[in-house]
C-alpha cells in the first residue's frame, strides 16, 4: 500500500497532480482511490488531496501517521500536514511561500526556516519549482517539476509517468510540462 498526500493552496493544481499519480498507479495494475476537495474550501484556502494505491484500497483518504509521501506545493502547507507522515515517510516540498490572510494583515507571522526545521525530524527533498518553471519559460509548470521530483520517490518508470502526464495536461503545454517533469525527476 502506498499513501500519498498532495497539499497546497487553492488554485495551485493539487487536484490535477493527484489525478496524474492515480492514473499512473491504475495503469500499473493497482487498485486506486483518490480524495479531493471542492467548493468553499478551494477559494485560496489550504487544499489537500489524497492518493492511495495497492492490491485493495478501502478508505479513500490518507490519515495521520499513514502517509509515505507528502508532496507540498508550498512550505507552510508542508508544515501543516507533516504529522500525516508515517515514521519513515518523506516530504517533497516546493520552496514557495504564500502568505495566508492572517499573515497579510499582520495577525500572524509566516514561520521561519520551515524546511530546515522539518529536516530535523523528516527526510525532506526541497526544490525551487517556481524558479525552474520560470527558467523553462512557463511559470504554470511548477506542478510538473515538483511531481517529477516526487515521482522518483514514489516509483514507476519515467516513461509510465510521462505517458499519463501527456494525456492529462493541456495539449499545447505537453512539451514544456514534459521538460518540467524531467527536470524534477533528474533531481530526485
Amino acid at each position: 500500500m502506498m499513501d500519498i498526500m498532495v497539499v497546497g493552496v487553492g488554485g495551485q493544481g493539487t487536484l490535477l497532480t493527484s489525478r496524474i499519480i492515480g492514473k499512473t498507479a491504475l495503469n500499473a495494475g493497482y487498485d486506486v482511490k483518490l480524495s479531493e476537495v471542492h467548493g468553499m474550501a478551494q477559494r485560496g484556502g489550504s487544499v489537500v488531496t489524497y492518493v492511495r494505491f495497492g492490491d485493495k484500497v478501502y478508505e479513500p483518504t490518507v490519515e495521520e501517521g499513514k502517509a509515505d509521501v507528502l508532496i507540498a506545493f508550498e512550505k507552510l502547507e508542508a508544515k501543516r500536514y507533516a504529522h500525516y507522515l508515517k515514521k519513515d515517510g518523506i516530504i517533497i516540498v516546493n520552496e514557495s511561500e504564500i502568505a495566508p490572510m492572517s499573515v497579510v494583515i499582520g495577525q500572524a507571522q509566516y514561520p521561519e526556516n520551515i524546511v530546515e526545521e522539518l529536516r530535523k525530524t523528516h527526510t525532506v527533498y526541497s526544490i525551487d519549482g517556481d524558479g525552474i518553471a520560470k527558467s523553462l519559460g512557463n511559470s504554470k509548470v511548477v506542478n510538473s517539476v515538483v511531481l517529477g521530483l516526487g515521482a522518483k520517490h514514489i516509483g514507476f518508470s519515467e516513461q509510465e509517468w510521462l505517458e499519463v502526464l501527456k494525456q492529462t495536461v493541456p495539449p499545447k503545454t505537453v512539451e514544456v510540462n514534459e521538460l518540467a517533469f524531467k527536470n524534477g525527476y533528474e533531481r530526485g
Binding site: V9, G10, M40, A41, Q42, R43, G44, G45, S46, E64, L76, E77, K79, R80, A82, H83, P100, M101, S102, V103, A108, Q109, Y110, P111
Partner: peptide, 10 residues
C-alpha cells in the same frame, strides 16, 4: 501536529 497559521478560504 505542528502549529501553523491557519489558511481559511478567502
Amino acid at each position: 501536529k505542528e502549529s501553523a497559521p491557519a489558511r481559511p478560504p478567502i
